[in-house]
Simulated scan of single mutants.
Amino acid sequence: MCAIDSRSPWKLGVLFSDTGPTAIIERSQKCGVLLAIHEINAAGGVAGRMVEPVLCDPGSVPSEYGRMAEKLIVEDHVRVLIGCYKSSARKEVLPVVERRNALFFYPTLYEGFEYSPNVIYGGACPNQNSVPLASYLLENYGNRFYFVGSDYIYPRESNRVMRNILRQGGGEVLGEVYLPFDGGPEMFGPVLADIAEKKPDVIFSTVVGEMTVAFYRAYHAAGHDALKVPIASLTTNEAEIGRIGAEAAAGNITAAPYFRSIGGEANRRFLENYERQFGKEIMATSCAEAAYFQTRMFAAALSKVGRLDTDLLRECLLGSTWDAPQGQVKIDPDNNHTYLHSRIARVDSHGEFIVQREVVRAVKPDPYLVTPDLNDRRLRLRKTAKS
């Protein structure tokens, strides 16, 4: 707990990488945090005190996130942190915040099957993205899937979950391949040859970071038509599509709570302010949007509690709502995860995600997939565009 000092700013530890293979996403997440802080401070801060980001660059190295989290808490006296993209990085931070009783905001989709009283989970868990994506793909493309992923916790666990969901719907997995982060574009050659031989209906990709750009480009260069056999993902977003290029990206599919192309006044303001602060080079992404609304929700709770006390902040946050760019979100008091909107979008010929299906209201998080039902009416997607 930190005593109130009216002269000093509130500190928020920010653990996102500016360098390394996942920086392509994490830079947008950092921007989401910094935009929220800018807006909070421009409105007078919290209880008259500014919010100060304490920035770290873990370099996309999982162990560095844990080391830097320890430093932030012990040396910089930070009690609240936000950060991490990869699950392996989150797993390094988790024991640190639990041991030190700090509060950690995690604004990234993940594989589920986790709970910590010290973490507020702001990204989608499997029932909010994997289940509706599987249902959409089975309905529109077919039941023969091929899995390609980066080699770490999230892809392997996400594929395990997706395999179980597909089994429910009569789907089958023809191949499952994991690739190292330090490989070059040439490593996709054997994978693409196997895909050409096995002829799946859909490629389910859990490839992340810079590898995503290389994979999508290689898939297109090898002559595959994404309009017929798409790469479907939970992670590929606007930042990566911008690097891939419209020609190679067109036709591919992502499931996420947020896309910058959605309507609504809250999203319009978010995008205008984001571009004003950071220009067009670092695109707003679903992970940036989650980092943004989590920072705003932290500040709202802090204004009520008046101190950086983990237990009081958590109690205030649980059950709280926010009108986020994606729509209203809510922190579930049952599990510290967040009610989020589920959307399926396809990249058009201009390189923009166009939403094809979406739920009517935010979906209650079910991180342990207690009810992994493909026909769950709560996850029924309504059509929003021609598929």
Rank of each mutant, 00 (worst) to 15 (best):
E92H: 06
A124V: 12
N127D: 04
V80M: 01
D76T: 07
P107F: 02
V78Y: 06
H77G: 02
V131W: 01
L103C: 05
R90Q: 12
G112T: 06
P107W: 04
R100V: 01
Y110Q: 14
Y121S: 12
C125P: 03
G123H: 08
Y106N: 05
P132Y: 00
I82E: 04
E111S: 15
N118Y: 08
R100H: 15
I82Q: 07
S87I: 10
V78T: 03
Y106G: 06
Y115D: 07
Q128S: 13
P117Q: 08
G83S: 10
C84T: 14
H77Q: 13
V96H: 01
N129C: 10
C125E: 15
N101M: 01
V80E: 03
G123V: 13
I82T: 12
K91T: 00
C84L: 13
L109T: 15
K86P: 04
Y121Q: 13
P132K: 03
S116N: 05
K91L: 13
Y85I: 10
R90H: 13
P117F: 01
G83C: 03
Y121L: 09
N129V: 05
P126D: 04
I120K: 08
N118V: 03
G123L: 07
R79G: 07
G123T: 08
L109R: 09
V131T: 09
A89S: 14
E111W: 11
R100E: 13
K86E: 01
E114P: 08
G123Y: 10
R79K: 10
Y110W: 15
V97H: 01
E114D: 13
I82F: 06
G112K: 03
V97N: 03
G122V: 02
P126V: 02
N129H: 11
V78L: 01
R100I: 04
Y106D: 09
Y85G: 04
F105W: 02
S87E: 10
E111Q: 14
P107G: 06
G83V: 12
A102T: 04
S88Y: 00
G122P: 03
E111M: 00
Q128E: 12
P126Y: 01
L103G: 07
A124M: 15
V119D: 01
Y121I: 05
L81P: 06
E92W: 10
E98C: 09
Y121K: 12
A124C: 15
E98N: 08
P95L: 11
N129P: 01
Y85A: 10
Y110H: 14
H77L: 07
G123S: 13
T108R: 12
I82H: 02
L109Q: 14
P126F: 07
C84R: 10
E111H: 12
P132E: 00
K86W: 05
L103V: 00
R99F: 08
G112Q: 04
C125I: 06
S87Y: 11
A124R: 09
S116H: 05
Q128D: 12
Y110N: 14
A124P: 05
S88A: 11
S130P: 05
R79Q: 06
N129A: 14
E92G: 02
K91N: 06
Y110A: 15
F104S: 08
S88R: 10
A89P: 08
E111L: 10
F113P: 00
L94Y: 03
E98P: 09
V96E: 11
